[in-house]
Design a protein around this nucleic acid. Structure first.
Length: 219
DNA sequence: GCGACAG
DNA sequence: ATCTTGTCGC
């Protein structure tokens, strides 16, 4: 697929995003998704970890190993990681109530980032939590955990810049599918009792790194 | 035209 | 994303 064709796919799928939500206020399980790459960038491992939303312990997980399905192009990120992530999701024995993606949802040039794509394809509620911005402008939120400021782009509020820990660099929260922005914010805060990044992202990050390492060095 | 640009 | 030297802080 060419970049032009990928953009067409995004514009075709974008109308399918559910912006009403509001999504589960008390999900029983929340999934984290992340991908690790080999040093040469020729291999990748995708991981999904499903956490009990109350205890934040892992109750299910799966991985998918493969080749990057697309070059790294900002704005077309989903085409790179989606196939391996879907492989991992299909290997779960449970269906999570919410997907927490490592990247953006609506906070995207065409309002269709990885979290939207993953949400539409799976039909599950999804949100994006990015470590760095892709689009938009914002004011620095107050230093206290829980403080946030709107992320604006082209006249739209596309997400929130959220402080998950006192005095620590904020994260970028945006809606993916079947979730309100307010609920997405609440869920991210529930997942960050101790660290800047959601517990879901942290467990998935560890798992895909381990899986990649085991793929490169069997023994 | 120039710089920016999720992971 | 990954590599990589040094530095700050708990």
């Amino acid at each position: 697929m060419t970049e032009e064709q990928a953009v067409v796919v995004q514009e075709e799928l974008r109308p399918l995003v559910d912006l009403v939500g509001p999504g589960p206020s008390a999900p029983a399980t929340v999934a984290g998704l992340d991908v690790a790459y080999s040093p040469g960038g020729d291999l990748l491992a995708a991981a999904v970890t499903v956490l009990d939303a109350r205890t934040l312990t892992v109750v299910d997980s799966a991985v998918g190993v493969g080749r990057p399905a697309f070059g790294y192009v900002p704005g077309l990120f989903a085409f790179r990681e989606l196939p391996a992530l879907l492989t991992a999701l299909n290997r779960l024995t449970t269906v999570p109530d919410l997907l927490v993606c490592d990247g953006h949802g609506l906070a995207h040039p065409r309002r269709f980032g990885l979290a939207c794509h993953l949400g539409v394809v799976t039909g599950l509620p999804a949100i994006g939590v990015g470590k760095t911005p892709l689009v938009g402008t914002w004011d620095p939120p107050p230093v206290e955990r829980g403080a946030w400021s709107p992320l604006r782009d082209g006249g739209d509020v596309v997400g929130r810049v959220l402080r998950t820990r006192d005095g620590v660099k904020p994260v970028f929260v945006s809606v993916g599918h079947r979730m309100s922005l307010a609920n997405a914010t609440a869920q991210v805060l529930a997942l960050t009792p101790r660290f800047r990044l959601p517990e879901t992202t942290r467990t998935a990050d560890r798992l895909c790194r381990d899986a990649l390492s085991r793929t490169e060095h069997p023994d």
